[in-house]
Design a protein around this nucleic acid. Structure first.
Length: 801
RNA sequence: GCCGGAGUGGCGGAACUGGCAGACGCGCGGGACUCAAAAUCCCGUGUCCUCAGGGACGUGUGGGUUCGACUCCCACCUCCGGCACCA
């Protein structure tokens, strides 16, 4: 028997697949389509076991679906703009393009060695001008629609990376990438008006097949809350200030009024105390502000008029009011809000209860914030005695009639600030003209290609500002002197539409042809980690909705089904380059082969749960592959070719077909499918020369192919067949799934006392008679007649006394 | 605080719709082959008791429903993750 030489076998079949164009798909087929996609990887130089998991899941599904008659699109590319390459450039002086492309080359060759079935002819890299040209083009469409705009806004600024961060890139007040504490700065920024789509993003979650946990995260992120907006007139400034509240029922309980330090009106308050407070609040790190336990604030000397009763409420500036939620101003109702209560306590402000729970005396020493059935309004003028929800509604309706308020819905989601003071990103096709202002670059001048620069170091101004020849242009409108936008786009823009580009990757007249995109989309199975469940996946959904509104495509949701893979951990920490705990597949592929590695990563546990990396399991898997090789090779040599019978081995094979088909096709239970093939191989090894052995061997090889395609292909040809990658998936014969005899459990009072081997189609009476006849049952029944007999045909008989 | 998820042998896990708890693998113990080792193969492997037939206990804890609960219900404990001065 030939030795199992994994390297030779894997190289051989990878060549065969490439030569045959095995995974190359066209945009037309009579077969039904399936689009299988894993999240776009950032090209760090090396693969690790986390990548191994995600891409092998996608690969198994791809190969399984292809053999089940589907026309499967399974592309791969790289999210190749972004900070790490630029940081490396700053550190080592290598041009980001050079290091990025070197990384891509390296990681691609690793990917090819794993044997993943990608249509590499559709590959894309987001730093390629042929890709980002069409991103710039789409940006211009967004701009035309008013969905991209520029405004001054307080932004999260990372003093280390010298750049603005999206809210999503801030974790616990720190820069997600470098861990530096984030500051707040007021800057002109580009925004996408994603908030226009908040409700649609929420509603359409109903239409996708995603895990509930992921949907919950998105709902959380969008943060819809129903309430009212109420206008308070600030005396002295003569300004109406809107506040958002979810508790309009407590309006009569407002005893003071608070503005966030960043609120636009604060600058107009002429008070040294206020200016000093605002200055100090601005210096405070975001993290400090969020963690502060003691409430701080300053009285402005002004008063706001409560529109429900005309009361004069003292106006404070305090940093417990957030500038970017609601309107940045609140009415404070200390009796019914813990934060307001804390502030009132610290500043000696009055507390007035206006909602009374049933059978409760008014206790103004604590805030009553919960909701109880039957609570009623008190101290609320004409609304006294009404149930709180009804009273709240009445109050808003009256304000509405008076033009001082109305019902409204507020979202936590904020517009997407997407400009970055960075070099290695997609240039924003905008020119600033002194005469004409913000001028979009005409479409026929795209792409605006990233210029070469000398120095990547951030200096507070974007690195692109140094590329003077590039920056100074004439205005497309008036021809006068103008300057290019020097900020670049957030890389989440790049990954918001790449899955569309794959469908028509070399189009140089449009981002994609609508027919191609409509044919393949939505993605039938999207695979990736939870860490992108709120960020990337919300942006991509937004992007698709906008393109749909622009008539560029015919669907509203990009990802019909989402499989959230678990994390591969090492030392209980998610494996990642940043955590410095990566174990790569290259070494293991060399030692044990790609097939063993692919099997191993999926056998570690359920693919949607976290799994700790262990080296010993690869060895176990390598044993299995070698065993498979030996057993099947032997069968190929000695087992007769004959019609498969209906004996135990053939039945086991059919059982395995049914099990693997269901596990891979429906349940995504990749680990148990492998276990089923192992069981089959175990039985086969005990009977390698029987009349059913050849069928069992063929079945085992065929079933393991999505996982271990190389060795499966080699064994398939040893068995005398060709082209397993395109062979039809085996179908289980239902007749063969029925067993000749089953073991029926006989219980007395729910405890197993005997087991019977019986025919599965024995009727209930016969089964009970047989069970009654059992000696052991007789012992436990001890002469008594069972009061009740429960029969589950083919499973058990239970006598209850 | 709100939301989501998970607790099963020495370990990873299986049990999908309420019906044999521990499939499959790792590890460990014993044996075969070998001069020896590796590789391979075979047997055993939840805990305790045992007259060696078997018996009792056992899926985070406490209750409940049921002939029967890892699975359903109630209460709780622990761990992991998300959101969070969000008005």
């Amino acid at each position: 028997m030939e030795q199992y030489d994994h390297t030779a076998i894997e190289e051989k079949w990878q060549r065969v697949w490439a030569d045959a164009g095995a995974f190359h798909v066209s945009n037309a087929s009579t077969r039904p389509k399936s689009y299988v996609l894993e999240m776009l990887p950032y090209p760090s130089g090396t693969l690790h076991m986390g990548h191994m998991l995600v891409y092998t899941i996608g690969d198994v599904v791809t190969r399984f679906r292809a053999r089940n008659g589907l026309h499967v699109l399974h592309p791969q590319g790289f999210d190749s703009f972004g900070l790490p390459a630029e940081n490396a450039a700053i550190k080592e002086g290598v041009h980001p393009r050079v290091s990025t492309e070197r990384n891509i080359e390296h990681i691609t060759s690793s990917m090819r060695r794993v044997g993943w079935a990608y249509d590499w002819s559709r590959s894309l890299t987001t730093h390629d001008p042929t890709y980002y040209r069409w991103q710039q083009w789409q940006f211009l469409k967004f701009l035309e629609r008013g969905l991209a705009y520029r405004k001054g806004a307080p932004v999260k600024w990372c003093p280390n990376d010298q750049t603005v961060l999206a809210n999503e890139q801030v974790r616990d007040g720190r820069c997600e990438r470098c861990g530096f504490e984030v500051e707040s700065r007021l800057m002109e920024q580009w925004f996408f008006r994603i908030t226009d789509y908040a409700q649609a993003l929420l509603d359409d979650l109903e239409t996708v097949d995603w895990p509930d946990s992921i949907k919950a995260r998105q709902r959380n992120w969008i943060g819809r809350s129903e309430g009212a907006e109420v206008l308070f007139l600030i005396d002295g400034l003569d300004e109406d200030v809107p506040v958002f509240t979810t508790r309009p029922d407590t309006l009569y309980g407002a005893t003071f009024f608070v503005l966030a330090p960043e609120h636009e009106l604060v600058a107009r308050i002429d008070s040294d105390d206020v200016r000093e407070y605002v200055r100090r609040a601005g210096v405070k790190k975001t993290a400090e502000r969020a963690q502060a336990i003691e409430k701080t604030g300053v009285f402005t000397g002004l008063h706001a008029i409560n529109p429900v009763n005309g009361e004069q409420l003292p106006v404070y500036v305090a940093d417990y009011v957030l500038t970017d939620y609601g309107t940045g101003a609140i009415m404070a109702v200390p009796a019914h809000d813990q934060r307001d209560f804390d502030f009132a306590t610290a500043f000696g402000l009055p507390v007035r209860q206006v909602v009374r729970p049933p059978d409760n005396d008014v206790d103004e020493s604590v805030a009553y914030v919960e909701h109880t059935e039957g609570e009623v309004l008190v101290n609320s003028g004409e609304f006294d005695g009404l149930p709180a929800p009804e009273g709240g509604r009445g109050i808003v309706e009256r304000l509405e009639a008076e033009g001082r308020g109305g019902f409204t819905i507020n979202y936590r989601l904020r517009d997407w600030g997407f400009s970055r003071q960075r070099y290695w990103g997609c240039p924003i096709p905008i020119v600033y003209c002194e005469e004409c202002g913000i001028v979009p670059v005409p479409e026929d001048e795209l792409p605006i290609v990233l210029p070469e620069i000398e120095d990547y170091k951030p200096k507070g101004v974007p690195p692109l500002a140094q590329a003077e020849e590039w920056v100074n242009v004439s205005c497309p409108k008036c021809g006068g002197e103008a300057k290019r936008e020097t900020e670049t786009m957030d890389t989440f823009v790049d990954s918001s539409w790449y899955f569309l580009r794959y469908c028509d990757v070399s189009n140089d007249e449009a981002p994609f042809e609508r027919a191609a995109v409509d044919y393949w989309n939505p993605v039938d199975l999207y695979i990736g980690g939870v860490d992108h469940a709120t960020v990337h996946m919300i942006y991509a959904r937004f992007w698709v909705k906008v393109l749909n509104d622009l008539g560029m495509l015919g669907f509203r949701e990009p990802f019909a089904q989402f499989f959230s893979n678990g994390w591969v951990t090492l030392g209980k920490t998610k494996m990642s380059k940043r955590a410095g705990n990566i174990v790569g597949p290259d070494d293991f592929i060399e030692r044990y082969g790609a097939d063993a590695c692919r099997l191993n990563i999926l056998f570690l546990g359920p693919a949607n749960e976290d799994m700790e990396w262990t080296e010993s399991s690869v060895e176990g898997m390598s044993r299995f592959v070698r065993r498979l090789w030996r057993v099947v090779s032997e069968v190929a040599e000695v087992a007769p070719t004959s019609e498969p019978g209906a004996g135990p081995l053939a039945r086991k094979a059919h059982w395995a077909i049914a099990k693997v088909s269901d596990d891979v096709g429906r349940r995504f239970a990749f680990n148990t499918a492998i276990a089923a093939v192992m069981e089959l191989v175990n039985e086969l090894s005990r009977e390698s020369a029987g009349p059913e052995s050849r069928f069992a061997a063929e079945t085992a090889v065929s079933l393991i192919q999505p996982y271990a395609p190389h060795v499966a292909e080699e064994l398939w040809s040893k068995l005398g067949h060709e082209g397993l990658w395109e062979a039809p998936w085996p179908v289980a014969d239902p007749a063969m799934l029925e067993v000749e005899s089953v073991e029926v459990v006989v219980q007395v009072n729910g405890k197993i006392r005997d087991r019977l081997q019986v025919s599965p189609d024995l009727d209930e009476d016969e089964l009970v008679a047989l069970a009654r006849a059992s000696e052991r049952v007789g012992e436990y029944l001890d002469g008594e007649e069972p009061a009740r007999t429960v029969v589950v045909p083919g499973k058990l008989v239970n006598f209850v006394t």
